[in-house]
């Protein structure tokens, strides 16, 4: 089974790191797409199948918080699980993002295995 994963981050190097990590997981096919902010992510999700969104918080145009709120209010998109991947590790922020619908939270810096495990947990797949 192949999962379509949308990586949302304004930093191109961060997107390429996450892509590389996912491509190193051989157990499942992860098909990666990228978006540079929340708006681009929403546009993409409305046009193609997305099984999981990994999103940063601080981004121009539309940040991760607004992306989550938009996904939650869109019936066709609200089922897509979202994992927040952020440098913001304050408890206040983590709780806020989980409250508005995030299913997982990965704090930067993270090891590839941490990201893989969180994705497998949220998608309900095991190695």
């Amino acid at each position: 089974m192949t999962f379509n994963i949308l990586i949302v981050d304004d930093s191109p190097v961060m997107r390429s790191i996450v892509r590389r990590m996912l491509e190193s997981v051989h157990a499942h096919g992860f098909n990666c797409q990228e978006a540079e902010n929340g708006q681009a992510a929403l546009d993409f999700a409305r046009s193609a199948r997305v099984d999981l969104i990994l999103t940063d918080i601080n981004m121009p145009v539309m940040d991760g918080e607004e992306l989550l709120r938009n996904l939650e209010t869109d019936e066709s998109l609200q089922a897509i699980p979202v994992i927040v991947v952020s440098t913001d590790k304050t408890e206040g922020r983590v709780q806020q993002m989980m409250k508005i619908g995030a299913r997982g939270y990965v704090r930067k810096p993270f090891m590839p295995e941490t990201l893989r495990n969180e994705i497998q947990r949220v998608l309900g797949v095991m190695r």
Binding site: R20, M21, E23, S24, M111, P112, E113
Partner: peptide, 13 residues
Amino acid sequence: VRKILWKAGVLVQ
């Protein structure tokens, strides 16, 4: 070790 494995795209179980 971690650096070499990352460069090779190898994840640790």
